[in-house]
């Protein structure tokens, strides 16, 4: 009967795919995509736990006795909104980063940052010596 858990396995797989994208990809947009997948997997987790076999959508109507659990739906409505808010903000950051660094690859940005740091340190030591 372990098959009865397949929904959770799907969730776990999606979750790990999302996390892997965040870890492995250097492109900032792809990271946000990964994050979105990660979050969506959580939505699926909640919604699938709300499902009742033979139930119907939680809108009261004549003749329906069994409903799926409405509470997770409410929670996930909120979570979706949070997700889009995060995505929007993240993308706004990506635009700004693109303007400031001229790239949206983590490698490049990291490289540029190291350069700036070296430069400031160099200036500091020069100032101290002179």
């Amino acid at each position: 009967m372990i098959i009865g858990l397949y929904n959770d396995w799907v969730v776990v797989v999606l979750m790990m795919i999302g996390l892997y994208i965040v870890i492995a990809h250097g492109n900032l947009i792809k990271k946000i995509v990964g994050l979105a997948i990660f979050q969506t997997s959580v939505f699926i987790l909640y919604i699938s736990m709300a499902k009742v076999e033979g139930g119907s959508a939680p809108i009261l109507a004549e003749g329906i006795k069994q409903f799926s659990n409405p509470l997770p739906h409410v929670l996930i409505l909120t979570a979706i909104v949070v997700g889009v808010a995060t995505t929007a903000l993240g993308l706004a950051l990506v635009i700004r980063i693109n303007e400031a660094y001229g790239s949206i690859e983590e490698e490049d940005i990291q490289h540029l940052d190291n350069q700036t740091q070296d430069e400031t340190e160099l200036q500091a030591t020069e100032g101290e010596q002179s």
Binding site: L19, V22, I23, A24, K31, E106, E107, Q110
Partner: peptide, 15 residues
């Protein structure tokens, strides 16, 4: 070799 990307490694630490 070019693996040590901070945010990547941060996320990895989480995992």
């Amino acid at each position: 070799l070019s693996r040590n990307h901070p945010s990547g490694s941060m996320a990895m630490w989480v995992a």
